[in-house]
Design a protein around this nucleic acid. Structure first.
Lengths: 209, 209
DNA sequence: TAGCACCGACCAACCAGTCGGTATCTACAA
DNA sequence: TTGTAGATACCGACTGGTTGGTCGGTGCTA
């Protein structure tokens, strides 16, 4: 039905990821997927709308995953772990979306940008909340400023889009486990760490096996 | 002497940071700094060269700083700390360069890209080496895969360009100290941490005061 | 026969880069 | 000190190529 629409998105993702939004013309996109300009404008009002659709697909998915994680677990450590794990694993599914998302966000037209920004902020807030909760419950070190720590976590994970290659030498499970390990080591209090109630974060488990 | 050249770079940085490389035309740049197209092409062969110059200025500076840090200290913990601190502080000086650097690198023409890539890789290797040395000397946890950990560190710091605002509510010293604290907590072995030979990384000190 | 899916020639706008030109400065000989 | 030749700094009208977007049309389907 809307087969062509999907093909256009697929092609544009492939091309945008490699050459950037401005490095690819509509003609190149439709040529790449064997369609025509008319076909393109049948499904999209503008090139800008295509960019928006790509952004929205990804951020909507990530946000949903984070909300799920937040609802599934009760204590902050597990929540944080689950959010990070699901977040990292998204790179396997949505790598091209993510690349476009982070590299081309400057070029979103104001109306679209506002829509995306809302969801982006929600996601950020999720992480801040979990960190705050962790401190309140005494599981996380309280000297850490929540915002900076949160941005550090986001940065660490987000940056993955610059170097992660599907079927590359580092698989996504390993990356995800290492990240969780790094973050929990830096965020948990000494006591919580030693109790190791949460031995299931990667590297400790691996040691025991 | 080359006053105009500097003004062009300054104006383009300002505009590129806000609207992206492709969101700004040569005419807009020269208009912004009260010059002319002829003036621009007197100092630059092409718009691409301008982009290259911006990239190169920044990466050259960062690389130099990292080498300095590596030579000044002997043990890996202090090296890592110094590299991170100097790296984070660069954001204060070169924020616009960095934004352009990370957002527009896709648009560098092949010849320029190769030149930049070399320096970028050198910097990355610096970090990997320090991490490796730390593990070899028993200061850092050896279960951590060096590459992933290194990319995590890079990501955490690099991402700062997306949210850091000069004269914003978070000053660069604090950010730098928190990052060092997070990274050292996640990387140091439990013993090294408890010995606290390195009490001078921010937050512990702050606690004692 | 009505409408949905799609086509592709065409257009107007824009933009990187060119080029012929002017103005100022430097060097040096008369 | 003056004259002048050559270089350097800078200007801005113009151009050729490209691109996002339009629109009249075609064929298939219900």
């Amino acid at each position: 039905m809307t087969d062509l629409k999907e093909r256009i998105i697929q092609s544009s993702l492939e091309l945008f990821e490699k050459h950037g939004y401005h490095g690819v013309s509509i003609n190149q996109i439709v040529e790449h997927c064997g369609a025509s300009k008319g076909g393109f404008y049948h499904y999209f009002h503008s090139k800008d709308e295509l960019l928006y659709v790509i952004h929205d697909t990804f951020i909507t998915y990530v946000l949903e995953k984070a909300n799920q994680a937040k609802q599934t677990y009760n204590n902050p450590t597990e929540k944080l772990q689950a959010i990070i794990e699901s977040f990292v694993k998204v790179f396997d599914l949505y790598k091209p979306h993510i690349s476009v998302f982070y590299q081309e966000s400057t070029y979103l037209k104001p109306d679209y940008e506002e829509l995306i920004k809302k969801k982006r902020d929600q996601f950020k807030q999720n992480i801040f909340e979990v960190l705050q909760e962790g401190q309140d419950k005494g599981e996380f070190r309280s000297i850490l400023p929540v915002e900076i720590t949160g941005m550090a976590v986001l940065g660490m994970v987000n940056w993955t889009y610059k170097w992660y290659r599907k079927n590359g030498e580092k698989d996504i499970e390993e990356i995800s486990h290492v990240f969780v390990d790094l973050i929990l080591h830096s965020v948990l209090t000494g006591e919580t760490l030693q109790q190791d109630r949460y031995t299931d974060f990667f590297l400790q488990t691996k040691m025991n096996s």
